[in-house]
Amino acid sequence: NQASVVANQLIPINTALTLAMMRSEVVTPVGIPAEDIPRLVSMQVNRAVPLGTTLMPDMVKGYA
């Protein structure tokens, strides 16, 4: 099963992502692949992401 990127904390809108904000977890539906975590660092979210939410490509500016 593919691990996805999950929010490790509440991430406010327009926040630049850091490693501490993300974790890898096997979830359904599948979100951004966990191997993309290094690429996500310093990218901004375009909405508030609650703790435990799977990051989807449309939630991260410049990812999709």
Results as ranks from 00 to 15, higher is better:
residue 62 G to A: 15
residue 40 L to K: 01
residue 37 I to S: 05
residue 28 T to M: 07
residue 34 A to Y: 11
residue 56 M to I: 06
residue 23 R to A: 04
residue 13 I to F: 13
residue 58 D to C: 15
residue 40 L to Q: 00
residue 56 M to Y: 05
residue 52 G to Y: 06
residue 6 V to N: 02
residue 24 S to W: 08
residue 16 A to E: 06
residue 28 T to N: 09
residue 55 L to C: 02
residue 18 T to Y: 06
residue 41 V to P: 03
residue 25 E to C: 05
residue 56 M to F: 10
residue 1 N to Q: 15
residue 15 T to P: 01
residue 51 L to Q: 12
residue 29 P to K: 06
residue 58 D to W: 14
residue 41 V to I: 13
residue 5 V to E: 00
residue 59 M to E: 03
residue 1 N to T: 15
residue 47 R to E: 07
residue 41 V to S: 07
residue 35 E to W: 06
residue 41 V to H: 07
residue 31 G to D: 01
residue 53 T to E: 07
residue 5 V to C: 04
residue 23 R to K: 04
residue 19 L to E: 03
residue 21 M to I: 04
residue 34 A to M: 08
residue 29 P to W: 04
residue 1 N to E: 15
residue 19 L to A: 08
residue 10 L to H: 09
residue 49 V to L: 10
residue 29 P to C: 15
residue 33 P to G: 12
residue 42 S to Y: 14
residue 16 A to R: 06
residue 29 P to T: 06
residue 10 L to F: 09
residue 30 V to C: 03
residue 43 M to Q: 07
residue 40 L to I: 11
residue 10 L to M: 14
residue 20 A to I: 15
residue 34 A to F: 08
residue 15 T to F: 12
residue 32 I to G: 01
residue 21 M to H: 04
residue 2 Q to C: 13
residue 18 T to R: 11
residue 15 T to L: 06
residue 13 I to D: 12
residue 23 R to G: 04
residue 38 P to C: 08
residue 63 Y to A: 03
residue 19 L to K: 06
residue 28 T to L: 04
residue 60 V to C: 02
residue 63 Y to T: 03
residue 59 M to C: 05
residue 45 V to F: 01
residue 50 P to G: 04
residue 48 A to W: 05
residue 33 P to I: 12
residue 35 E to T: 14
residue 40 L to H: 01
residue 3 A to P: 10
residue 59 M to R: 03
residue 20 A to P: 06
residue 54 T to F: 02
residue 6 V to R: 04
residue 58 D to V: 09
residue 45 V to M: 08
residue 59 M to L: 05
residue 25 E to R: 04
residue 35 E to F: 06
residue 23 R to L: 05
residue 20 A to R: 13
residue 55 L to M: 09
residue 8 N to V: 12
residue 60 V to S: 01
residue 31 G to Q: 02
residue 32 I to D: 00
residue 56 M to L: 15
residue 40 L to D: 00
residue 61 K to I: 14
residue 44 Q to E: 06
residue 28 T to E: 15
residue 46 N to D: 09
residue 40 L to Y: 02
residue 32 I to E: 00
residue 47 R to F: 15
residue 60 V to Y: 01
residue 7 A to I: 06
residue 31 G to T: 01
residue 39 R to W: 05
residue 59 M to T: 08
residue 44 Q to H: 12
residue 29 P to G: 05
residue 2 Q to E: 15
residue 43 M to K: 07
residue 52 G to N: 14
residue 55 L to I: 15
residue 59 M to G: 03
residue 35 E to S: 13
residue 56 M to R: 10
residue 58 D to M: 15
residue 39 R to C: 05
residue 42 S to P: 03
residue 16 A to H: 07
residue 43 M to Y: 15
residue 52 G to R: 05
residue 54 T to C: 04
residue 39 R to V: 05
residue 62 G to R: 10
residue 29 P to M: 07
residue 36 D to A: 06
residue 17 L to N: 00
residue 27 V to W: 02
residue 60 V to M: 07
residue 54 T to N: 02
residue 14 N to M: 12
residue 48 A to L: 09
residue 42 S to W: 14
residue 48 A to I: 11
residue 35 E to I: 08
residue 13 I to P: 07
residue 27 V to Q: 05
residue 4 S to H: 02
residue 27 V to N: 04
residue 20 A to Y: 15
residue 58 D to H: 07
residue 7 A to R: 01
residue 21 M to V: 05
residue 59 M to K: 02
residue 14 N to A: 06
residue 20 A to W: 15
residue 20 A to M: 12
residue 26 V to G: 07
residue 60 V to L: 07
residue 14 N to T: 06
residue 17 L to P: 02
residue 56 M to D: 07
residue 64 A to D: 14
residue 49 V to D: 01
residue 30 V to I: 09
residue 43 M to H: 08
residue 25 E to Y: 09
residue 23 R to Q: 04
residue 19 L to D: 03
residue 60 V to A: 02
residue 53 T to M: 12
residue 37 I to R: 14
residue 12 P to E: 07
residue 27 V to I: 10
residue 14 N to E: 13
residue 17 L to F: 03
residue 34 A to H: 14
residue 48 A to T: 14
residue 46 N to T: 12
residue 40 L to F: 02
residue 3 A to I: 11
residue 64 A to S: 15
residue 38 P to Y: 09
residue 9 Q to V: 08
residue 24 S to M: 07
residue 43 M to N: 04
residue 37 I to A: 11
residue 39 R to L: 09
residue 39 R to K: 14
residue 51 L to D: 10
residue 30 V to P: 07
residue 21 M to A: 05
residue 44 Q to D: 06
residue 32 I to Y: 02
residue 63 Y to E: 03
residue 4 S to Q: 02
residue 3 A to T: 11
residue 37 I to V: 13
residue 54 T to A: 06
residue 32 I to Q: 01
residue 11 I to E: 01
residue 44 Q to A: 13
residue 18 T to G: 04
residue 9 Q to Y: 10
residue 44 Q to P: 06
